[in-house]
């Protein structure tokens, strides 16, 4: 038995969103009587942090504290349209729609405040703590709760805004194949070190070092969490989990629970470092690109290349199971 050491790397480009029917997402914002801003979406947050990031986009654009933002993603039947949170599109598409809606709502907010303060709306600014104030004369100010009350009960206006992200579907130029299918591309590079047991075929991922270029990390803590957790998932796809060989042909067989569907546990994680590089995208919300799925993509080919480096077996089907390693070694010896 020999433990064979190998190292491999891989780089990926990852497009944000889809080239289908405009890939639209819409957002509506309205102020409550108390000066809260409700952001209505159909975009679903199932734990990835979309609500937090779009609340940041709304707060930043409105010039209001995060506490004033209420994200309502209640119902895809009744809410503004969203294609969905997939294709790493949520932050980019929904963020852009929310910023557009927040700009419109901000304009109305400043007009209402201007009428209350008897000044021109163009001379007003927000201070980020909840006040609208006169530029150069910060004592002339009004709190958003008073702005909202005035809009609702005195001026008879709705402080609201509409936003939509839409990128028209793009078709390839027949002669050249040239096309513009995505809004921007994020990038990742992984270096993996592995150990291959040539008797059992077991692959152990020793270390994983990743660099991710993600536009701008709107929420650095969540972005860091996403790239580290995503890289772990890449390891998991590479050497552990699979619904094969039965899915999707038959759902009657194959893994049905955590006892049969293997994922690496806390004792099986490699030494890992992840670095985030920020190169803001001109069309992203505050420069952000979509990074969600990409975080799992680079580790997989890096591990495949490391296996090739270790034992000469070139695997192209995930996961890289002991059986596939041993069959590959047999073929090399034949």
């Amino acid at each position: 038995m020999t433990l064979l050491y190998g190292r491999g790397y891989a780089s990926v480009n990852y497009p944000t969103g889809m080239n289908l029917g405009g890939d639209p997402s819409q957002a509506l914002i309205h102020a409550t009587t108390m000066g809260g801003f409700v952001v209505s979406l159909s975009s679903v947050d199932l734990g990835q942090g979309l609500k937090t990031v779009v609340a940041q986009c709304a707060a930043e654009t409105l010039g209001m504290p995060m506490e004033n933002i209420i994200i309502d993603t209640a119902d895809t039947d009744t809410g503004p349209h969203c294609m969905g949170t997939f294709a790493s599109r949520g932050t980019h598409r929904v963020g852009n729609a929310v910023i557009m809606a927040a700009r419109e709502a901000r304009d109305v907010m400043l007009q209402v405040a201007g009428d209350e303060l008897e000044v021109d709306a163009g001379d007003l600014e927000t201070d980020g703590t909840g006040f609208v104030r006169l530029k150069g004369s910060p004592e002339t100010k009004i709190h958003i709760s008073d702005v909202a009350l005035a809009a609702h009960f005195k001026q008879g206006r709705t402080i609201s805004g509409r936003g939509i992200f839409l990128k028209e579907r793009n078709y390839p130029v027949p002669e050249t194949g040239e096309m513009d299918p995505d809004s921007c591309q994020a990038h990742a590079c992984s270096v993996a070190e592995v150990e291959v047991d040539d008797e059992t075929g077991v692959v152990t991922v020793l270390s994983l070092h990743n660099a991710y270029e993600i536009g701008r990390a709107l929420n650095p803590a969540m972005a860091t969490q996403q790239v580290e957790g995503g890289a772990w998932m890449g390891v998991s796809h590479a050497v552990f989990e699979s619904t094969e060989p039965y899915y999707p042909a038959s759902r009657d067989h194959g893994p049905i629970d955590f006892n049969e569907y293997l994922m690496p546990g806390p004792g099986e994680i490699p030494v890992q470092t992840s670095v985030i590089l920020e190169r803001p995208a001109s069309n992203g919300p505050f420069g952000a690109k979509g990074i969600g799925e990409m975080t799992a993509n680079a580790p997989i080919p890096a591990i495949a290349n490391a296996i090739f480096d270790a034992c000469g077996v070139r695997l192209t089907t995930m996961p890289f199971t002991p059986e596939s390693i041993l069959r590959g070694l047999d073929a090399l010896r034949a």
Binding site: G47, Q225, E228, G229, W232, P266, G267, I269, Q272
Partner: peptide, 22 residues
């Protein structure tokens, strides 16, 4: 570190990659 990994080995997490939890 190994004892922590062992202690939480019965708890499945899909998001974090376990590192920040340990």
């Amino acid at each position: 570190r190994d004892e922590v990994a062992e202690a939480i080995s019965g708890n499945v997490c899909r998001c974090t990659g376990y590192e920040p939890i340990i």
